[in-house]
């Protein structure tokens, strides 16, 4: 999205995800599943995955593929990112799916 579209919204970047309920779980899952290599696309992948898990706490593989298809990665072949998002969904505390 463009910066103008975010007027009035609060913005969390990769630097703030450690304090974010879903973001922090995703960070741990990306590490556990080797969901990043060079790391350059990683903040975007995390942001898209946070958006997905906020809207859909129990995504299917296909849901993850569709939600993240706008983010290019040239290192991982995406499979470990898929694993990471699904692991994060499984690890999210109960209230996340409430």
């Amino acid at each position: 999205m463009l910066a103008l579209q975010a007027e009035g919204a609060s913005i969390t970047t990769a630097e703030g995800l450690r304090e974010h309920r879903i973001g922090s779980v995703l960070q741990d899952a990306f590490k556990a599943c080797h969901g990043l290599q060079c790391g350059y696309c990683t903040p975007g992948m995390l942001a898209a995955a946070v958006g997905l898990l906020q809207a859909n706490p129990n995504p299917t593989e296909d849901d993850v593929r569709q939600a993240l298809r706008g983010n290019l990665c040239r290192c991982t072949g995406y499979e470990h990112i898929l694993d990471a998002v699904q692991l994060a969904a499984a690890n999210l505390p109960e209230e996340a799916s409430a």
Partner: peptide
């Protein structure tokens, strides 16, 4: 082993 370089990259602290 999970990677030791990941924490930094996951927290937006990659330095390109």
């Amino acid at each position: 082993l999970p990677r030791r370089e990941d924490d930094r990259l996951l927290e937006g602290a990659g330095r390109y």
